[in-house]
Design a binder for these strands. Structure first.
Lengths: 341, 341
DNA sequence: CTGTTAGCGCCTTCAG
DNA sequence: CTGAAGGCGCTAACAG
């Protein structure tokens, strides 16, 4: 196939084909109203001249951008550090691009706040937003609702106006982990959890306590400690827990990184895992498959979550204005040696 | 300050101010040729009506987008898993937005390849590209050079046409780590490194061997093993190394995650760290501050790297066509207990 | 089936 | 200092 000079406007192709710009436009958008022969001829010309059209002009003319924004709050260290975000971001970007949408990455930090993002969203005509790390006290969230920007929250369940969400079964995962531990004979459980304003943590708390209640044994003692997630917190938590009288025989962590710290510190204190203490994590990072002992954990369906977020957003954009129902995806509880009965 | 109906076009503001659209445009772009009084009046109106202009129309008119693309190869598992990318991505996005540029995130995967990215780049009039994970066999890299798209490589040193790069002193870091180990009395060193087609790994190899040569002691034995980075590789490498006769008394790893596996497995084999074997890592992830023993490692200037990448790209875009010189930033070697002499 | 005609909203000469 | 006019490249409505 010979390549001629790359053409830069629709009119050049039109001139070459001996038709008008409108016809070329119809061909490029696969719209009806062009004879098969002309269509083929134009397609060949487009191919030959490596012509791609100009997205900017198209946007201006159609009044929409076919692009969506992802907002990442860099000032929230939990987010930047959290091992699941790269994969989630990748999944969202993947799904968006497959649907013909471009992804614009917005980051907020200590100085550049939500106003800046909203300005860009308006100026750039971003069609919709995906917020992978919102919490109930998020300033952006309120503004997005007011501005009626179609938005999908990931990992935070809050619905209002043009805002819907996709999340996974954090509650069921913790319910299952907790129940399994109880059936395995554990009687003094501690949950190391993140702050409840992030609904993922809140749900895990719920599942944990519901499992305790449902088990219905008075001799069971349970406790929840809210802390930052991370290795250091795990270490600190163990130190604190074992300085007390009532020492847990099971520690459930809302992050594998925290669990790693817990495992390490239990080792130092001479506590056997899972003999003396069972430990579970959340996230299924690579480490957890290889730690000593291998860590029981929960895998979130990150790829499907990203895809679902995009699909929900597209529904809102192309649909008839109704905000679609939230979507809940299934987590997978992974049993390894660290919590063996 | 009262807010009236948000205005949506420059002409609305113009009508309100009793001037023409051109004048408002001049005000919005801080261009001369408007009387102080009119300028103030228009500014007030803009503020009052929360008017932001339309980026799309502006782009079309000016022929550029004020946006840059970041390309992330999701099919390269090393990249997705690697703990430094979130921070780097954040830094790039931050710097770009501060400079008034939008960031478009492109991902390639097994099916959607480089063609798709290049198409988008052309159609979207993306002004330039940042490639945070290129290697010498990267198909995109060649295409980008041919297409003369202003591009900055991060972490891979290759210069051609409109392509330049920013990187940090991987070589010096390894040189320093190696030299320190040798001066500490270690005599049998093994480097666990990634593949040389990624220049970061290649440079580390260089620094390692140069340090060995410079030390100039025949009794020193050194070896380099190329492997994937990650926890599992560290475990496997230790198993293999200690099944042999000549056992290293120092293991240098090109990633903290690998070093974590090494520490773990050495522990299982009953080898003391740093007593029997010194261990070093690279990346300074959170774990390394808390591991047993705390891990000596190298911190890359990720934030500055992202900022430098953006600044180089802007130089290319606004400058006089000359491709700017590459920039090398300083790594920081961090000594902790795992390599104590 | 195809061409023509208006815009989309802004920027940028060129006059005045 | 300001207004008017043309154009960026494409789409969509309307004729033919």
């Amino acid at each position: 196939m010979t390549r001629a000079e790359p053409a830069t406007t629709i009119r050049e192709i039109a001139a070459l084909a001996g038709v008008s710009g409108g016809t070329v436009s119809r061909v490029m958008n696969d719209k009806p109203g062009v004879g098969a022969a002309t269509r083929e001829r134009i397609k060949a010309l487009i191919e030959e001249h490596d012509f791609h059209g100009d997205a900017t002009a198209r946007q201006l003319s159609r009044g929409r951008s076919d692009s969506l924004g992802i907002v990442f709050p860099l000032q929230v260290s939990e987010v930047v550090m959290h091992p699941v975000y790269p994969e989630l971001l990748g999944a969202i970007s993947d799904a968006a691009q497959d649907a013909g949408y471009d992804v614009i990455l917005f980051t907020t930090n200590a100085t550049r706040g939500v106003d800046h993002v909203l300005d860009s969203v308006k100026r750039k005509r971003v069609d919709g937003l995906i917020l992978p790390a919102a919490s109930s006290d998020d300033a952006l969230l309120g503004r997005v609702v007011d501005a009626e920007i179609p938005t999908v929250l990931v990992g935070h369940r809050q619905r209002a106006g043009r805002v819907t969400w996709v999340d996974c079964t954090h509650d069921e995962a913790l319910y299952e982990q907790t129940t399994t531990l109880l059936h395995g004979g554990r009687r003094s459980l501690t949950l190391l959890n993140g702050p409840a304003r992030i609904s993922a943590y809140n749900l895990r708390s719920e599942g944990f306590w519901r499992a305790i209640r449902d088990f219905g044994d008075d001799r069971v003692t349970a406790d929840e400690k809210v802390t930052e997630m991370g290795y250091a917190s795990g270490v600190a938590a163990v130190d604190e827990l074992f300085a007390r009288r009532s020492r847990p025989d099971a520690i459930l962590c809302s992050a594998d990184t925290t669990a790693a710290g817990v495992l390490e510190q239990l080792g130092k204190l001479g506590r056997a895992v899972p003999g003396d203490v069972a430990v579970t994590g959340f996230d299924d990072i690579e480490y957890s498959r290889h730690s000593t002992p291998p860590l029981s954990t929960v895998r979130m369906p990150l790829h499907d979550t990203g895809a679902a977020a995009v699909s929900l957003l597209l529904e809102m954009l192309t649909g008839h204005g109704a905000t679609p129902e939230p979507r809940v995806l299934q987590t997978e509880v992974i049993e390894r040696e660290s919590s063996a009965g």
